[in-house]
C-alpha cells in the first residue's frame, strides 16, 4: 500500500484523474504553484475592473450601462470566489492583497493597457474575456478541486461577457464611420496583447512542465493560443474588422491559422512593470484600499464591541 503522504501516491491520484482537495496531501511545489496561479487569477479579476470601470460613467445608453455594471460586478465576484478557493491553500486574503500591492504577486498583464474609447469595452469583452475563456474552459478540468469548481461557475458567466463584447463591436461596425474607426482602433490595440495572454511559447515557458505533469494545466500555452486564434479570426472577418497582422494565413491542410511573430520584447517589458498602466493600476488599488482602512477598522471595532456586549448579557 502507498503511503498517503508520498509524492508517488499523489502522482498516482493525479494520473487516475482524481481531484485533489484542500486537506489532501500535496507536494509543497504543487501548493506553491497553485497559490501563485490562483492568486494571480483572482488579482486579474479585480484589477480588470479598472479598465472597464473607466467607461461606466460614460456608457452611451442605459442598456449599455447596465450590462457593463453587471459584467464588472461578475468580475469582482470571480475575484471573491478565487480568493476563497485560494485561501484553502493556507494563505489569507489580507496576505494575497499585500503580495499584490508589494508587486510580489502578478496579475494578467493585459490590464496594463488603457481602455481609450468605447469600443475598447467591446474589445475587452470579446478578445480579453474570449482569450480568458479558452484558458478557463481548460482549467475546469484542473486537478485541484476548489479551483476546478470555481472555474465551472466562472465559465458560465464569461461566455456571456464575450458575447456582449462582440455585440458592441458588431454594432459599432454597422454604425457611423466614427464608430467603425473606434472599433478598428480598439482591435488594433487589443489583438496582440490578447494573444500574449496565453504566455510565452511552450519552448520558453518556465512553469509549464510541472503544471502539465500535475494536471494543473491541461493544455499548453501554444495549444490554447491556437484555439483562440482559430475561433476569433473568422469572427473579426464576419463583422468587417481587420486583424492587425499582414502575415495571417489559413493553413488549408491543418485548418489552423498561422500568424506573424509576437513581440515578446513588449510582453516581457510590460510584465516587468513597464507597460502603459502598470503604475496607474497598482496605485489605484493601493489608494482605495488605504482610503477604506478606517471603514474596515470601524467594522471590526463594531463587531468586537457588540460581541463583548452580547457575552456580558448572557
Amino acid at each position: 500500500m502507498h503511503n498517503e503522504h508520498s509524492d508517488t501516491h499523489f502522482q498516482t491520484r493525479i494520473d487516475n484523474g482524481e481531484h485533489i482537495e484542500a486537506k489532501d496531501y500535496m507536494p509543497e511545489n504543487y501548493r506553491k504553484h497553485l497559490i501563485r496561479q490562483m492568486s494571480q487569477h483572482a488579482h486579474s479579476e479585480v484589477i480588470g475592473m479598472q479598465p472597464e470601470g473607466n467607461w461606466i460613467t460614460r456608457a452611451p445608453s442605459l442598456r449599455a450601462k447596465q450590462i457593463l455594471l453587471a459584467k464588472i460586478q461578475d468580475e469582482g465576484g470571480h475575484g471573491l470566489y478565487l480568493y476563497s478557493a485560494a485561501e484553502t491553500l493556507g494563505v489569507s486574503r489580507v496576505e494575497f492583497i499585500q503580495q499584490l500591492q508589494s508587486g510580489k504577486a502578478k496579475y494578467s498583464s493585459i490590464f496594463n493597457y488603457p481602455a481609450l474609447n468605447w469600443a475598447d469595452v467591446g474589445a475587452i469583452g470579446w478578445l480579453v474575456d474570449g482569450a480568458a475563456i479558452v484558458n478557463q474552459v481548460s482549467l475546469q478540468r484542473t486537478s485541484y478541486g476548489p479551483y476546478s469548481r470555481a472555474m465551472v461557475r466562472i465559465c458560465k458567466e464569461e461566455s456571456f461577457h464575450q458575447r456582449q463584447g462582440y455585440e458592441i463591436m458588431a454594432k459599432m461596425m454597422k454604425g457611423t464611420k466614427d464608430q467603425q474607426a473606434m472599433a478598428q482602433d480598439a482591435m488594433n490595440r487589443w489583438w496582440w496583447p490578447a494573444l500574449m495572454m496565453f504566455g510565452p511559447h511552450d519552448t520558453d515557458s518556465p512553469h509549464s512542465s510541472d503544471a502539465v505533469k500535475w494536471k494543473i494545466k491541461r493544455e499548453t500555452n501554444d495549444e490554447l493560443r491556437q484555439k483562440f486564434i482559430d475561433k476569433t479570426i473568422p469572427q473579426a472577418e464576419l463583422i468587417g474588422l481587420t486583424v492587425p497582422d499582414d502575415k495571417i494565413k489559413l493553413d488549408e491542410k491543418t485548418g489552423h491559422y498561422k500568424i506573424g511573430p509576437i513581440n515578446w520584447d513588449e510582453f516581457y517589458r510590460v510584465i516587468a512593470g513597464n507597460g502603459p498602466c502598470n503604475k496607474q493600476r497598482l496605485d489605484h488599488h493601493i489608494k482605495f484600499h488605504e482610503e477604506g482602512s478606517w471603514v474596515r477598522d470601524a467594522a471590526v471595532a463594531y463587531k468586537q464591541k457588540h460581541s463583548t456586549k452580547e457575552l456580558q448579557t448572557v
Partner: peptide
C-alpha cells in the same frame, strides 16, 4: 457607479454597484 473599483472592501464594491444597477 462612479465607485466601481473604489470600495473599501471588495464585497462593498459589489454591493454599491449592485445598488447602482437596481437604480439604472
Amino acid at each position: 457607479s462612479e465607485l466601481c473599483s473604489r470600495g473599501p472592501i471588495l464585497e462593498e464594491d459589489l454591493a454599491l454597484t449592485n445598488i447602482s444597477l437596481d437604480l439604472i
